[in-house]
């Protein structure tokens, strides 16, 4: 293949990939904006409550958790950092929300984008949520255990 042919083909390949991604990203951003503007996020927070209870995350931690799960750590950083700095979340909430979110965030975008190039979206989504849930529960139990121990040490 000539270099010009190679260049053309490469440009075409990159262009097609970006076009495909834009078909996911643009509608997704529209949905996200509507969710944000109409305060539907607050209502969605209630859906997370049972999951939060199992992981030991209190209600104050659920909003930043939801924002991170949907929007991601970079886009959601404003809300996440603000929740931390406002002091609504205690140390345990902060730890558990951070642990869950580093393993599982921006789930819609990541899943759709990788599915677009040929990965199995269902496996991706299910594994990430399940793994983040299990690890967060482990951290939650460990946190309670070390707290109790330090309390007992002090009492003794």
């Amino acid at each position: 293949m000539s270099f010009v042919g190679f260049l053309g083909e490469t440009l075409f390949g990159a262009g097609v990939s970006i076009l495909k991604l834009s078909l996911i990203i643009i509608p997704l951003m529209i949905v996200m904006q509507v969710l944000k503007d109409y305060q539907w996020l607050d209502r969605l927070t209630n859906v997370l409550q049972p999951l939060g209870n199992k992981m030991g995350i209190r209600k104050d931690g659920l909003f930043p958790l939801l924002v991170g799960i949907l929007f991601g750590i970079s886009y959601g950083s404003g809300v996440i950092i603000q929740s931390v700095e406002s002091g609504e979340m205690n140390e345990k909430d902060r730890l558990l929300v951070a642990v869950f979110l580093v393993l599982c965030h921006a789930v819609v975008e990541d899943t759709l984008v990788f599915a677009a190039v040929g990965a199995n979206g269902f496996i991706l989504l299910a594994t990430r949520i399940l793994a983040a849930f299990i690890i967060t529960v482990i951290f939650s139990r460990q946190y309670v255990r070390t707290r109790r121990k330090s309390y007992e040490d002090r009492a003794a």
Partner: peptide, 16 residues
């Protein structure tokens, strides 16, 4: 909201 979401999407696409 739709307009603003659309432009966020376009900007994100440009960035990626």
């Amino acid at each position: 909201s739709i307009k603003s979401g659309f432009w966020t999407g376009v900007r994100t696409t440009g960035m990626l």
